[in-house]
Every structure is written in structure tokens, then in C-alpha cells.
Design a protein around this nucleic acid. Structure first.
Lengths: 346, 346
DNA sequence: CTGAAAGCGCTAACAA
DNA sequence: TTGTTAGCGCTTTCAG
């Protein structure tokens, strides 16, 4: 730990080490390493060889400070514990590939306080753009975002006012459409089962839209059941058992997501409840898991991959035009009837 | 876009703006904002008020360069598309909470080339430590890691040589133990179903351990079936149907993960195959989803939350002692018999 | 308890 | 095509 002092005495090599090793100025080394400006093939090779030999890794901290540009895109999402946000992320990564931009994700656990903290932290790295879930943010978040001077894309939801750009679906409309499909199939005693999460504004809006449409048809929810925490599949089973025990005459169950819906479906199959004749079922998200179930649950696509992709494209597109002429992209989810809503009654 | 030039003319406020607004030197402002050194409560308040009023967000790029320290921990994992790595992440985040360290994740998709690229990118931010999945890395990766001069923790697997620290389980042993349990329950015609992923070294080692133990008992796998891509639950169904059509006399199916195992279980239940009497089933990971299934699949815990936690604790512990006295933590997964392995034969 | 000076490692802008 | 000169915004170190 002392006799020899290799070039990398402590924290990584510097451009200077490569410069000395190759006999080329730091500036030219920098040019080569960034493929910028014209450099003769000869020096280029010498530099590359020296860098490789030393194992040089550029210091982006210094580079970012000098160039006032950082190739990072902040992505702020509420959760990683169901498959929806990872799929949004996949869409973002895919679209960012080859643009030189890199996503950095922060997770809020549906807590506004955490959102504020995560956003602050992320902005302190001066990213090139921000993608964040939802349209509901604390005042402090909104101020920070406005002041950041970079493109902001709010995703998932379009029911509300955007700060800059927005890419998503109307959850209110999704709820309405599902209600209409259920009503026109002739179901009349409808129950709702969902998560107990006041901060999940999208689930809330779906339920509101659903209720609205029922109301316009002169109907209302016959019963509701909420849960929080635990295995969604198991909770779906349990809640279904509970709600049916309490309100036996229900003929349709609308779940706030596919995973609890799948649990409910498994329960009905086990309990010998005829689906979709005696009982109709629907979820939300169109997750891949449903494909493997014995019966296909009715659902509605949440377009998460495309949302991620479009959001990333907006960021990648406007190099730095942020907060000017925000785009608004509303995607249209498609209803999947699956096997758990019977044919509409003529 | 021109008449007035607010303090934040372009890219964020600086310490200087806060200094001017509060009438306190930049240095003292910096001290206040970092809670470092003694500052009189009076000036402290003035600074805080000014910073808040302006909406100042510190620039960590500059801070990192000046202090030669960055509160980031690089986390490099192969995938986000099943629940295992998100759970590792949760363990890491939890342990890092309150340490001032922040995880930054990179995903390799099980590609060594991507791993190299992601690692290079991450190291260029000069993180305080690296957590990465697996013990198998390209030469280039190993060189970069050794040269980084920061603590490195390889996770998930302990069957091999670590660069610095390692936290995981022995997948070879997990495979062996499952084989022993199956054999002692009296099953004799065993099939294996897994993913076609040469780069998933942990799945490979489980299978090797499994085969070894069978061999020592004078047995061998009766059939195997591999898949890639698509819905794991559905693939589990399909593969199970396929392998049983080909090799009807199988009496046990060992799956490389719980999701395809769950698909297989649903298939067997549908097909009226008696579980566990006529057919035994086992998976791997002990995912939460299993709780919601009508029958509990036999499995083995992969300890992913604890692995994440312990790895993060190592990084948080050694402030900068990296690569000195690497720790080796081997966790012990517990076999869950569930309802799909019959009682061992006396 | 507070401030002044000197860089951290790199890149923009200009010169040669 | 290559090199030189100034910083980027902050923190370290040392003086008051």
C-alpha cells in the first residue's frame, strides 16, 4: 500500500494521464474520446491505445460541470412492485437507446413527501429532462419543475393540467368505457374492488369515471371493498370472498387492477361460480400474466410501454427547448372483453 | 423571452445567488446547506430563508467535483422483468435510507456487452460503491472494477471467486437440496423445465447441482424442456403440456423459476393430474404470487431482499476502504415443501 | 463563527 | 489538425 504509486494513485485516472501516456495534449485526447472535432487517424489511434491500456474511464462529473450538459433523464415513478412501471421504464430505455441519454429512476412509493425529496435530489444532478408519473404534485414540486428550465413530461394520465408535456390515457374515460361495456352486457349488481390508496390518482379517476357512467344509466355501485399491502393475487381472492359473502346478489366485479382481478377469477373458478354467466369480471392494465390464466380476464390496456416510449421521444427530441410548447399525447386504451364479460344483450 | 433576466437566467441558481440574496458569503451558505461546521442560528435562518425563497437546488455536479465524493451507489442487474431484482432493489434502498447514499440502477438484459457498457457509464460518475449481480464478468469489467478503488459487492451467487465482497446463496447447493428432497419423497422420473439463457449462470448452477445430486443417487433427468421469451405463466403451461406429451411417465417437474412453475401447476390442475400424488412440482424463488394460487408450489427462497440489504450495508459501512478485506456472506435458502411434494417415504 | 483563495477534471472558445 | 486559456459551481484549506 505504498512502495509504488501507480498513475491511478487514488480516485481514477485523469485526462492528463492519458495525455502524458500518448504524448498528445489533453484537449485532443478529450476530442478523441468524445468523437468531436477533427483528429487525424494517427493521433486518434495513439490516444485510444493509451486510454485502453491505462483503463481510463472519463469523469462525467467534471465533464458535466465544464460543458453544462448532462446526458441524464430523471424518471420518477411511484413504485416498482407491480409490473406496470417496469414496463414504462422499458419503453423509456428503448427510446433513449442510441440518443446518448440515460434514464435515472427514482421511486416515490406514492408519497408526495418522497416525491419532493426524490425530485430535489434528481434536479441537483441537472438532468436534461424529467419524466414523472401523474399530474398531481405538491406546490414545491411544481415550482422546482418550472424553475428547472428543462423539458418535463408528465405521464400515465391526461385528466388534468400539465406543467409542460404530457403523455398518457384518460383514466376517467377508461372507467366510463368499462362501465358502458358492463351495462350493455346486461349486468346490474356491480361491485368494485380496489386498493386503499388515496394517492393513486389514476385508480381514483377510473373509479370516478366508472361511477359517473353508472349514474348516467340510473345505476350505482352495489358494494365496494378495499385492501392495502400483501400479495395482490391472494388479496384478490380474499376480497372477492368477502364481498360476495356480504352482498350475495352481485353479478359483476370490477377490480382496480389485473392482479387482484386474477385472484378474484381464481376464487370464482374454485368456488364453482359460473364466469361469465353468473358473474362477470374485469380488471385493468392488460398485464402479460393474464395470458397464462385458464380464463382470460376482461381488461383494458394501459399502454404503458408506448407511454414510456413517447415520453422519452419528447425529451430526446427537444434538446433544450423545455417548457416551450409542451406536447399533449392522449393514447387510447382498447377494451379486451376476454372471457369474463358475456356477450352484450341485443 | 428577453425583457427581464431573472436570477435563474439559464441553468439553475448558484450558491452566489443565495449568497447575494442573504448577504452571507458563499462559503457560509454552503456550510448551512450541508449542515457542516458551526454557523450561528441567525445567519443559518437567513440563508435557509433566502434559499427557499429563490427555490435554490444545489448543483451536485459541481459539489462532486470539488469534494471528490459522490453519494451514489451503482447497482447493476440483469433484468427488471420478473419480480426478483426489484425486490433486491427494495432491500438496497431500504438499507441505504438515511445513509445519504443513493442507488442508481443499470440493467444489462443478461448481455455481457451491455454489462460492460453500463458499468463504464456508471463508473464515469465516480460512485461510492458498486453492487452487481453475479460472479461472471468479462475481463474488461473485472479490470474496471479493480481499478475503480471503491467497494464492489457481487450479489446473488457465492459459487465462484469474488472481486471484493460477495453476498448471496449457493445455487448449486439449492439445486442439490431440491434434488434430495424430491428423491427422498420417492419420485423417480424427473423432468426439468427452464429458460434458454446461457448467460443466466445462477439457473445453470442450480441445474448442475440438481443433476449432480441425482447422479449420486444413481438417477438422471428423464427429460428437459427449455423456452425463451413470452409470458412466463403461459410458457409454463405450454412447456408442461409438451414435456408430458413427450415423456408420459414423468412423476416430477422441476422448474427453473416459480412463474413457469405456477403455469405448470395451473396446467396440471386443469388437466386433472393429481398433485402431488401422481405428479410433484417445484420451482425456485418463493415469489409472493404463489400465495394466491389454489395450491402452494414447492419452492426455495432466493433471499433477494436480504441479499440487497446486506450488500448495501457493506457499501454503507466501508466509507472508502474498498477492495480491502472483502466480506463473504452466504445466506441459506429454506426449502418450502408447499403442497406439491408429497411426504417423504419412511 | 466567518471569509478568501485555490483548485477539483474537464470542455468551450479561441489561437496557431 | 492541434494547442492554449479560462472557467463551470462548488468545497477544501487556511486565515481571521
Amino acid at each position: 500500500m505504498s512502495t509504488d504509486t501507480p498513475p491511478e494513485s487514488r480516485r481514477g485516472l485523469t485526462l492528463r494521464d492519458v495525455s502524458e501516456a500518448s504524448g498528445v495534449s489533453e484537449m485532443t485526447v478529450s476530442r478523441v474520446l468524445r468523437n468531436r472535432g477533427d483528429v487525424s487517424p494517427a493521433t486518434r489511434e495513439r490516444v485510444l491505445a493509451a486510454a485502453r491500456a491505462l483503463g481510463y474511464v472519463p469523469n462525467k462529473i467534471a465533464g458535466g460541470l465544464a460543458s453544462q450538459r448532462v446526458n441524464l433523464v430523471a424518471v420518477i415513478i411511484p413504485s416498482l412492485s407491480n409490473m406496470v412501471f417496469p414496463e414504462v421504464l422499458a419503453g423509456i430505455s428503448g427510446a433513449l437507446e442510441g440518443t446518448g441519454l440515460q434514464p435515472v429512476v427514482g421511486v416515490t412509493n406514492y408519497s408526495p413527501a418522497r416525491e419532493e425529496a426524490v425530485l430535489y435530489e434528481m434536479l441537483s444532478w441537472r438532468p436534461s429532462g424529467v419524466i414523472l408519473a401523474g399530474l398531481e404534485h405538491s406546490e414545491a414540486c411544481v415550482s422546482m419543475l418550472r424553475a428547472a428550465g428543462i423539458p418535463i413530461v408528465e405521464i400515465m394520465d391526461v385528466d388534468g393540467e400539465a406543467i409542460d408535456s404530457v403523455v398518457g390515457i384518460s383514466h376517467r374515460r377508461a372507467g366510463r368505457e368499462m362501465a358502458l361495456a358492463i351495462i350493455s352486457a346486461g349486468y346490474r349488481r356491480i361491485g368494485f374492488l380496489g386498493t386503499k390508496m388515496p394517492e393513486d390518482h389514476r385508480a381514483r379517476k377510473r373509479l370516478e369515471g366508472f361511477r359517473e357512467a353508472l349514474g348516467e344509466a340510473g345505476m350505482e355501485l352495489a358494494d365496494t371493498e378495499f385492501y392495502s399491502g400483501g400479495s395482490a393475487l391472494r388479496k384478490g381472492r380474499e376480497m372477492t370472498e368477502t364481498i360476495l359473502a356480504r352482498t350475495a346478489e352481485l353479478d359483476f366485479l370490477y377490480y382496480s387492477n389485473d392482479m387482484i382481478g386474477a385472484g378474484g377469477l381464481l376464487y370464482c373458478l374454485d368456488a364453482g361460480i359460473e364466469v361469465p354467466e353468473r358473474m362477470g369480471l374485469a380488471g385493468f392494465n392488460d398485464i402479460e400474466l393474464l395470458e397464462g390464466l385458464p380464463v382470460r380476464l376482461a381488461t383494458m390496456d394501459s399502454c404503458r410501454h408506448e407511454i414510456g416510449r413517447r415520453a422519452a421521444e419528447i425529451i430526446a427530441g427537444k434538446s433544450s427547448s423545455g417548457l416551450v410548447g409542451g406536447e399533449r399525447i392522449e393514447l387510447t386504451p382498447k377494451l379486451q372483453r376476454g372471457d369474463t364479460i358475456r356477450e352484450p344483450r341485443g
